[in-house]
Write a protein that binds this DNA or RNA. Sequence first.
DNA 1: CGTCCTTGATAAGTGAAAGTCATGATTTCT
DNA 2: AGAAATCATGACTTTCACTTATCAAGGACG
Lengths: 315, 315
Amino acid sequence: MIDLSTLRVFLVAAEEGNFSNAAKRLHLSQSAVSQNIQAIEKAYDVELFIRKGRSVQLSENGEALLPVTREVIRAARLLEDNLKNINDRVCGELLIACSTSAGKYLMPALLSMFQVEYPAVHPRVRVVPRNSIYEQLLSLKIPMGVTSKLFEHRDIECQPLFDDRIYVIVPFDHPWAEYGVATPDDLLDQKVIMREEISGTCETAMQALKKYSITPDMLNVTMELGNPEAIEMAVERGVGIAFVSEMVAARGLALGRVKKVKLQGVDLRRTVYIARHVSNPFTRAQTLFWEFAKDQREQLNSEIWKSLTNFEPVP
Amino acid sequence: MIDLSTLRVFLVAAEEGNFSNAAKRLHLSQSAVSQNIQAIEKAYDVELFIRKGRSVQLSENGEALLPVTREVIRAARLLEDNLKNINDRVCGELLIACSTSAGKYLMPALLSMFQVEYPAVHPRVRVVPRNSIYEQLLSLKIPMGVTSKLFEHRDIECQPLFDDRIYVIVPFDHPWAEYGVATPDDLLDQKVIMREEISGTCETAMQALKKYSITPDMLNVTMELGNPEAIEMAVERGVGIAFVSEMVAARGLALGRVKKVKLQGVDLRRTVYIARHVSNPFTRAQTLFWEFAKDQREQLNSEIWKSLTNFEPVP
DNA sequence: CGTCCTTGATAAGTGAAAGTCATGATTTCT
DNA sequence: AGAAATCATGACTTTCACTTATCAAGGACG
């Protein structure tokens, strides 16, 4: 029966598309990788990689075997996790995928709180494109994801994790700054800064504005930037106003460089969910994290918010 | 990372509850089995078996690890199957669970036909209690089952395989024998032979008789026997009449020892289904067998019937 | 066009580990 | 009590997986 470590070698080699790099990742010699792959190829008379000169490329057969191979490794990992956690101290890896902003603001706070209770767990956050999270969950490439998008599917389970608010932020010397209120229609006269790609923040905002018959193309978008921090900076410098999530704006607000403005009648909330594939045994750490998120939601919300606005020097 | 062969040793040892027997099944020395188990126990500091004198017993922890372990092995087997089948000649194992009667009459005919096309596949039939088939399918202990019971479940897929008929059979010198017909009510005056446990045949018959307001307790059951062949024998000897499936009665009918009788207005048919767990990758052999059953249903039905009544000596 | 660098294959050598055999300890059955 | 069975243990053997060293072949580049 084929060896698990050999399978791992195959998997990594396939992902890297390069034996030398795979060897580095596996802490093995390049020779060992070659030999492992050849061992499978010989044993089953299958060509896994097509050798083209100095490089290798996964063959069609190799490609076809990948999902099943992943499945084996996944099952083995799970078993190992079970074994390790029998005696106790919860340990193991906790892989969570999320969007850039959640990865920056939400996860650090959340995970550090989790680690206080379970120090032997090693969380790993993987930042992925917003719209590929569910795709990756479904294909079992990742076990858990954090996103503001809700997704109905028989194999996906979602649970609210964090209540985020979206604000319009304006420069501190902006006319709206004093009273902190404006009407949706006021937006039309303003220069607005947006994200280049469609972000969750943007989507939520546009959704809410629809009720006031305001569509994206009616806005006067002066600038499009790649990330929310850049947007906040631009607002600080008076380029325009922007929709920004509470998480992102926290620092700027606390420093007084920007002010938040409420749009009358517009409720800009969005819930960030944690999602997982349901038909799927979980590692101990995953289960505990899920329960942790559920049981401590209120506390988490306030703690996260506290950590976002806390600028006390580290003792 | 833990070794697959070690896992297999654990699994077999757990199933056998005995290291020596496990060693035999694995073609290993008893010593090797001990060492393998101990290797896991040491590596993870877990007690898998409780040593009590000369015997061992799976511990609670060991029990808990079994399903996950099975899952790993299952995935590995599937991968291996994929590897083997790339180059094409379809090979591998084909495990099918079924009831005693299907195992005796249906499967031999069916599988021999399948083997003509795919000689490298090694079918294995496991006879299990009628009502545990779906249970075992759901827990993934078996990949496929053949049964006359239909079962609705999101993870179970059923497909009709064989159209069985149920007859009332009577001794050749029975008054009904000449014309081969009777009415349902006539049953009440007869001595009836039944199966001890509730069989599929019996269930179907009782279901059909309900329409004529005949319930099981109204029948005059003279004898209860353990298997359908015994019932047929008893009918031959004039003990009484009985409901028997076409498959089972075929031989007796062909020999003229018993006669079949139609109950007017009662349609005693039942369909035998083949079922599988759906959310589950299949081996090549499994997929092909499923397709085989689907595509050749009509032909299968006549062939099976032919084989059941064919008494030509083997050339 | 020749040189260098990178990448994969191959050969030889080494060491760890897994298996066997033989034996011991303990329990259970008769 | 003796015999048989069962698991643990220790010593020995062998296998095989990894490393190192080297080769061969492409690609990049001056």
